[in-house]
Structures are given as structure tokens and as C-alpha cells.
């Protein structure tokens, strides 16, 4: 098992490096903007400062998402194992299917957990530089993001293995989100309130999220637990049935 997890970590190096670079670049821009708001050009533009201050906390989530996507994406990717012939090679050895799947899932958990810890650390650094306090709620949001992204990758890897094609889960999710969004959003966008000039769509979305916050948190944990169980049993079965 250790060797297989080691392999996943080695394969993740490139994506981890890239996500660290992206986050570093983003943080640099964030810090420059923050400095400008305090003592640079932006300090003289009250309207801009007001608008940026209002939305500043949202930008702190961007690096978190980059970390999680970057860490969890490539290394544990079943599709890469299929296309490289690695899975076929494993099938010629005495290694069991459940060992392969458990090692992949464990690697995904380890990498995602590292990404979450880095996200938290990153948030703390940015808040220290920006001078604004981080609430406990911020940590909860990162945990929820972690749950959803991890759940997504668990299901995505399983679908790659079952359907032998990459991106089926992404397509299904986009279709479902698009359809649900259209059904929910169209009546709102057509309402009198939405047509008015001062309608804040982003604020409205946040308000909707806020109103379903408990459901979103519980849903994220259900997704992780169900995702892990479904992913394990379906993947092991798919590996056993798979022909090469």
C-alpha cells in the first residue's frame, strides 16, 4: 500500500507545484491591492475601497479552491492509470483490486487534507496582511469546500473507471447545475426586482446560500460518506470486471 500511495504522491507533484505558484501569484496581487487601499492610489478612491472591502473576503476562497483542485486532480486520476497501462500491469501482478482502490482513495484524502490545511494557513496569512479578522465561519466554509471537491473527485475517478472516458461526471454535474439554475433563476431574473438597476445578483446568490446553509453543510458530509462508499464498492467491482 505504501508504495502505491508513494506513486500517487509522485504523480501529483506537478499539479501541487502549479497550484502553489498560482496561489502565490494570486496572493501577491491580493497583498498589492490591500497595500494600495491603505497607502496607494486606491486609498484616495473611497467608492473603490468600499466595494473592494465589501467583497475582499470572497477572494480568500479562490486560492483554497486552486489548492484543492490542484492537489486532488492529477495524482489519483484513474484515467492516467488506464492510459499509461499501469492498471493492466497491476492486473498481471498479485495485487488485489481493493488494495489499488484503497490506496487511491487514501492518497486523495491525504492530498485533499493537505490542501485544506494549506488553504487555512493561506487564509490566516492573508488576513494578517490585510488586517481583517477571520471568523470561525470561514474555516467551516473551507471545510465544506473541501468536502464537495473531494466528493466530486471520488465520483469522477469512479466514473472514469466505469465508463472508460474522462469527464462524464463533470458533464452530468454541469447539465444538472445548468438545468436547476435555469429553473430557479429564470423566474427571479424575469421579476421586476431583477430588472431594476440596483439589483445585486451576487448578493442574491449569497443570500440564497445563506438561507440553505445548514442543508449545504450536512449535504457536504453526506456527499463525502456516500461518495467514499459508492466509489469504493463500484470501483473495486469495475476493476474486477474490467478486461484489458
Amino acid at each position: 500500500m505504501k508504495g502505491l500511495i508513494y506513486k500517487e504522491m509522485l504523480l501529483s507533484r506537478r499539479n501541487i507545484g502549479l497550484s502553489l505558484i498560482y496561489s502565490l501569484l494570486f496572493s501577491s496581487v491580493f497583498i498589492l491591492v490591500r497595500l494600495s487601499m491603505i497607502c496607494g492610489n486606491l486609498a484616495y478612491d473611497e467608492e473603490a475601497v468600499l466595494s473592494l472591502t465589501k467583497n475582499m473576503y470572497l477572494f480568500r476562497y479562490f486560492p483554497c479552491i486552486v489548492f484543492m483542485l490542484g492537489f486532488a486532480n492529477s495524482g489519483c486520476n484513474v484515467y492516467a492509470d488506464i492510459s499509461s497501462g499501469w492498471l493492466r500491469f497491476c492486473k498481471t501482478t498479485a495485487i488485489k483490486e481493493n488494495t489499488i482502490i484503497i490506496s487511491k482513495m487514501l492518497s486523495l484524502f491525504i492530498l485533499s487534507f493537505c490542501a485544506m490545511l494549506l488553504s487555512l494557513l493561506h487564509s490566516l496569512i492573508l488576513s494578517a496582511v490585510g488586517g481583517d479578522r477571520i471568523s470561525f465561519r470561514h474555516f467551516i466554509i473551507i471545510l465544506v469546500l473541501f468536502n464537495y471537491i473531494l466528493g466530486f473527485f471520488l465520483l469522477s475517478n469512479t466514473s472514469d473507471l466505469v465508463f472508460k472516458k474522462k469527464g462524464i461526471v463533470q458533464l452530468v454535474l454541469m447539465a444538472v447545475a445548468g438545468a436547476a439554475g435555469a429553473v430557479r433563476a429564470m423566474p427571479i431574473l424575469e421579476s421586476e426586482e431583477a430588472v431594476s438597476e440596483d439589483f445585486d445578483l451576487f448578493g442574491y446568490i449569497l443570500q440564497q446560500i445563506e438561507s440553505k446553509w445548514d442543508f449545504i453543510i450536512i449535504g457536504s458530509f453526506i456527499l463525502i460518506i456516500m461518495g467514499a462508499l459508492v466509489s469504493y464498492f463500484v470501483s473495486v467491482e469495475a476493476l474486477k470486471r474490467r478486461e484489458y
Partner: peptide, 12 residues
Amino acid sequence: AVFDELPFHEVL
């Protein structure tokens, strides 16, 4: 078993 294609990830 040895096949005509290398079955290991090329970054290793």
C-alpha cells in the same frame, strides 16, 4: 509479463 509498451507512468 512483459508487453511491447511500457506500463509505467512516464514521469517516474
